[in-house]
Amino acid sequence: MTNWVFKGLRTGIKTTAYPVRQDDTPGVSPGRPRATLLDSAAEVERLVELCPTQAIERQDGGAAIDYGRCVHCFRCWRDADDVSADWERSYEWAAYSADSAAAAQDLEKAFGRSLHIRFVDAGACGACMSEARQLNNPYYNMHRLGFCTTPTPRNADILLVAGPVSDAMRFPLRKTYEAMPKPKRVVAIGACAISGGVFGPSFAASASAAETIPVDVIVPGCPPPPLAILHALLLVVKRKPPSDRISLPIDPTEDAKE
């Protein structure tokens, strides 16, 4: 047993500086495409065609990205020789869901500093869950920020849901939500839970988790990295501001600040 204690001590502290400071360690996030200013309509069309999930939209002056649909396939970034979307290194991706901006107002009042989390896998591929699970590892250690998982929905404040809500998970998802006491918040993790991702809507999966239960915060990504999920939790308690659900091309002076 003593060996383990020494091993634990020797390893030292590895925890990320986020949210106090940004963490730019290579590999913590794959980054994501962002709205891109383009010279010609033909270039915009090229990007729109490259995207297999219709995440790229035509906008004045360039291409916008709908993060709820983007599945991180990198095709807009790699596949064409002559044009590519801009790629940003970031991870603060959580945003308020379209219909819960009002509910978002009192998130802060509703909770103290500690939050109990219940996770429901509603047909996720395993990667979203794996990223959420990393929040327990010493690098991210969500406990230091007052977040922990709970063995029963009756103690839960936050429901994390991942996956396109397969048919058989609709009922358990709704039941879990109903068993949680008020006030409660739902965070939808990943493109699947936001837009059905590559699976839904279909005969077997939904178009979003919001079809089954009300969703307050979305975390785009496929999968969103652990820091993005942490950002969502911090957004729920208003310790961090939200990101945008859609990235619109903006004028170059604004853009240059990044």
Partner: peptide, 16 residues
């Protein structure tokens, strides 16, 4: 290893 995958192939789970 997830970070390493991301550095090598741009994605932590090697998607794409």
């Amino acid at each position: 290893l997830l970070r390493l995958s991301c550095k090598v192939a741009e994605h932590r789970y090697l998607f794409g």
